[in-house]
Design a protein around this nucleic acid. Sequence first.
DNA 1: TAGATATGCAAGCGTGCACTTGCATGCATT
DNA 2: AATGCATGCAAGTGCACGCTTGCATATCTA
Lengths: 193, 193
Amino acid sequence: MQTSDRIIEAATWLIKKNGYRGVSTKAIATEAKVNESTIFRQFGSKQGILEAIIERHSDIPQFEKLLKEDATDNPEVDLLNVSQQYRLFFHKNADIILIGIRDKGMLPELDRVLADPPVKLHSLLVEYFERLQKKKVIAIQDERLAAMSFLSMCYGFQMSELIHRQYQSQLVTEEEFYKHSVSLFVKGILSHS
Amino acid sequence: MQTSDRIIEAATWLIKKNGYRGVSTKAIATEAKVNESTIFRQFGSKQGILEAIIERHSDIPQFEKLLKEDATDNPEVDLLNVSQQYRLFFHKNADIILIGIRDKGMLPELDRVLADPPVKLHSLLVEYFERLQKKKVIAIQDERLAAMSFLSMCYGFQMSELIHRQYQSQLVTEEEFYKHSVSLFVKGILSHS
DNA sequence: TAGATATGCAAGCGTGCACTTGCATGCATT
DNA sequence: AATGCATGCAAGTGCACGCTTGCATATCTA
């Protein structure tokens, strides 16, 4: 069905731009080149569109594999892989992340979907760092803090790209940022105080 | 005048929670224990309250001093100072930062106020790192990228505290995070390739 | 004490919004 | 050709919202 696709696409674009409450069903209909009543026949309510948007985008990243089975235990390699995956996650879900931030509290489920990946990744990183310390690959240190530093770095870069894209973004490209940041971070966790 | 204070306080709290469009003037009046008409007599319009909120909170941080006159050129010391200042900036402006993110595009002025500090701080850090490289305090490297890494780390930590406070926050305290992150970062920029 | 100022109260105005409904039309399957 | 289904169209409903107004009351100042 092509109609509901157009509606979802139009709604996503408009809500991302103006926020859920800043967009009327009439505006969505016009943007989708569809009659307003069609929206309600398809989705039941305005909230129904939002739910459809989220459902369509639900795509949780799998960091487990990268940090367990596939791990090389060379932190520079593994962390670069993680950062790439994280970056991909932000790109794929840019729309609902922005919507989730703007219209926080609108859909509790959405809040969770956005809050969980960082928490999950943090605990995986902690395990990973613990293992590398036991294997004496990296220096002894507080894994919780190291994981948080790395995570904040990635999260911060992606968020500032998402939120302030029109102002910044040209300062540094994603590739060079991660290449440099990972290697800098690895130097930090290698060296003994 | 105590009345307008109560109105601003109530509006800030409600808008932060539900977004500008998610709050009615009636709700603000009730929360402030004030008659709705009083709001319009004081601020003219709903938008007027928002402007008053921003005006009251305008407080731009001064990083120049920390990285120029007051700089010790010991990166661990200077960067810790910067991070403290950045952290303070987020605490003082938590309300309007959250509002600015939720209701982006509502007030162009607000967008600027929030986007400028990171950009400014980035260019100051670039200058700072250039100087330390010339003085051979730190290793030769791309200052743009180093500055971006540091900035993203701070920005990411503060943003995730602001946005996901109810889910995370207890993982790591601010003090230990910055102490650890700065020292880790400094190790990274000290060591040669 | 007299007047100005700030606020409360109640009623209301116009508008935009989410959502509904009844009917007509096109399109595809059988 | 007949049937069902998705959609368009137009009109409308009820409600919440931003905002106004006229009047009464309280508080403060000259």
